[in-house]
């Protein structure tokens, strides 16, 4: 994205391994960053939808409240000026006071619910993107999965039911924002692979020194000729302009950096299962910077 050339200034001497490695590392980081931005860009549309709904009814409710208040003030103003009790009663009838009272309570409760929903969306989005210190820390994988699920919920909910089958997991030493990104990728792929309405199962379990995370879908599956290429950079079966072909290859390198493994099994027509195996123990051998 910046002006950094990717291919041109490769050092001439093949012996210059450190320079090459450094450059590879830098390009890798750039790729990771741009894939993250692309993921956020795709999310933005979904998040806009998710926010516009509550904003829509809260905004409309405020305008209704405005009209209700006009009626209410007519009544309160009349208390001073009306000469008889009957006059007040009549006014009360004409503005449908009983309805107003009941509906005002609903209106405020619904609007509060809407604002709280917006607040939750923003918080999860911040959790998802902000926690991007490039450092290994003990983190709760389930919290990461749940945050990621709520961020991408809007893209998935019209395509699949998400089933969470969580085991007991210990805290895992990882860069949680990057693990979130891997999960996000797998979930997005799963949703894209489903034609009509399907099911996505997120399964976790603890096995001696590892945690295992499965993301399984009931989508159209990956054909035999493609399955060995899914982790290759720029490999995609999506039309030009729709997929970068980088999601899985970056997921692969993230998991690799964590000294873990990512595998795929798929039956065309039945579905696909991606499995991530992460070591629990502290690791800084693959640290990014």
């Amino acid at each position: 994205m910046s002006g950094d050339p990717i291919m041109t200034d490769v050092p001439n001497s093949p012996a210059d391994d450190t320079a090459l490695n450094e450059q590879l590392e830098r390009v890798n980081r750039q790729l990771l960053q741009s894939e993250k931005m692309a993921a956020i860009g795709q999310l933005a549309a979904g998040v806009a939808h998710e926010i516009n709904n509550p904003i829509g009814y809260v905004y409309s409710n405020l305008q209704s409240l405005d009209r209700y208040l006009v009626d209410m003030f007519r009544l309160t103003d009349a208390i001073g000026s009306a000469s008889t009790q009957e006059e007040l009663e009549e006014l009360k009838q004409s503005i449908d006071y009983e309805f107003l009272r009941g509906d005002l309570e609903d209106l405020v409760a619904e609007s509060r619910e809407g604002i709280e929903r917006v607040k939750t969306i923003i918080t999860t989005l911040m959790d998802f993107t902000h926690a991007d210190e490039e450092e290994f820390k003990l983190a709760d994988i389930h919290w990461g999965i749940n945050t990621t699920l709520s961020v991408i919920n809007n893209e998935i909910k019209y395509k699949a039911e998400v089933v969470k089958d969580f085991g007991d997991l210990p805290l895992v030493s990882c860069i949680i924002s990057q693990i979130n990104q891997v999960i996000l990728n797998l979930l997005a792929n799963a949703a894209h692979s489903i034609e009509g309405f399907g099911k996505i199962i997120v399964r976790t379990r603890h096995e001696s020194n590892y945690v295992v995370i499965d993301v399984e879908d009931t989508g159209k599956g990956i054909s035999q000729e493609h399955i060995n290429k899914v982790f290759d950079p720029f490999f995609t079966t999506k039309p030009i302009g729709e997929g970068t072909g980088l999601g899985l290859s970056l997921s692969f390198s993230i998991v690799e950096k964590h000294n873990g493994r990512i595998d795929v099994t798929s039956t065309p027509g039945k579905g696909t299962c991606f499995r991530i195996i992460l070591p629990i123990g502290t690791s800084d051998t693959g640290r990014c910077s």
């Binding site: 709904n53 009814y57 509906d103 619904e110």
Partner: peptide
Amino acid sequence: DEPNILKALKRL
């Protein structure tokens, strides 16, 4: 599919 949208529109 959002009940609160329906309620707000009904009010209006």
